[in-house]
């Protein structure tokens, strides 16, 4: 079964082709890594998946359904969630408020304008248990902008998970995290539920090889190679364009 699929996806910015005819198929429950050198179009691809940009041509399918024309928020409702390469939190919101927001929105409570937030007991309970799971319960009263970077990173992932996605896109989950907080973040990424399909964009090859079961390599906007971890690790061309310059 395919969780996420693209068909001949193209994105041009003026004369520049950021995504060039990408046809990709990601199976349900996969741990799929997208790698490629800087400027290969990895983040553009994520932005196309999530509806930040509209593709110039081509199709995107989630669970076999065409979502190409859907706006970003409608894709989230259908089970596509993401984290950002650079933390995108809500400044002076507390950790708890951020989590209440994410869970409340999933349940469609965001249209309730009369019931106080505090009266949403089921949302509060789920928010606390999710924060506990991500070891964030102790900082629930802190403003998110004042959290250590690793904690912010964990919250990013926790917020994405709170949407109960079928497919989770992780854009460099370990980027910028100081060494001593890194292991905590990675452990959390590894512990993501098995039924969630995870697409990982990453520069760190150790993380990719230890986490992914399939890898797609992007180069200059196009899909360059795809295969199992072993196949990609053995592929001499991949080594030449990517691993060679990195290792």
């Amino acid at each position: 079964m395919t969780a996420l699929e693209t068909r001949h996806l193209v994105k041009r910015f003026g004369g520049f082709t950021a995504t060039h005819d990408v046809s990709l198929s990601i199976r349900k429950g996969a741990r799929h890594a997208l790698i490629g050198p800087n400027g290969a179009g990895k983040t553009t691809l994520i932005n196309l998946f999530t509806g930040v940009f509209a593709p110039t041509s081509g199709q995107i399918l989630l669970d076999g359904e065409d979502i190409t024309a859907l706006p970003a928020h409608a894709r989230v409702a259908r089970g596509l969630s993401r984290t950002f390469q650079i933390n995108q939190l809500f400044g002076d919101f507390t950790t708890l408020e951020s989590m209440m927001l994410a869970i409340g929105e999933r349940k469609g409570h965001g249209r309730r304008f009369w019931r106080p937030l505090a009266a949403d007991r089921d949302v509060a309970e789920e928010a606390v248990s999710t924060l506990e799971r991500f070891r964030l319960a102790d900082v629930m009263s802190c403003e998110t902008k004042s959290l250590p970077y690793g904690k912010q990173r964990l919250l990013e992932i926790a917020l994405a998970i709170a949407a109960q996605p079928k497919v989770l896109l992780l854009d460099e989950p370990a980027a910028g995290v100081p060494e001593e907080e890194r292991e905590e973040v990675l452990a959390m990424v590894r512990a993501l539920p098995a039924d969630v399909t995870v697409v990982l964009i990453e520069h760190d090859m150790d993380l990719v090889f230890s986490f992914a079961d399939r890898i797609s390599v992007l180069a200059a906007g196009a899909l360059f190679a795809e295969g199992t971890v072993e196949e990609i690790a053995r592929d001499p061309q991949v080594k030449a364009i990517y691993l060679g310059e990195d290792a």
Binding site: G51, R82, Q88, G91
Partner: peptide, 14 residues
């Protein structure tokens, strides 16, 4: 107000 793009990624239609 704080982050419309992120809000959309939580399923909110700004």
């Amino acid at each position: 107000k704080r982050n419309p793009r992120r809000a959309a990624m939580l399923g909110i239609s700004p």
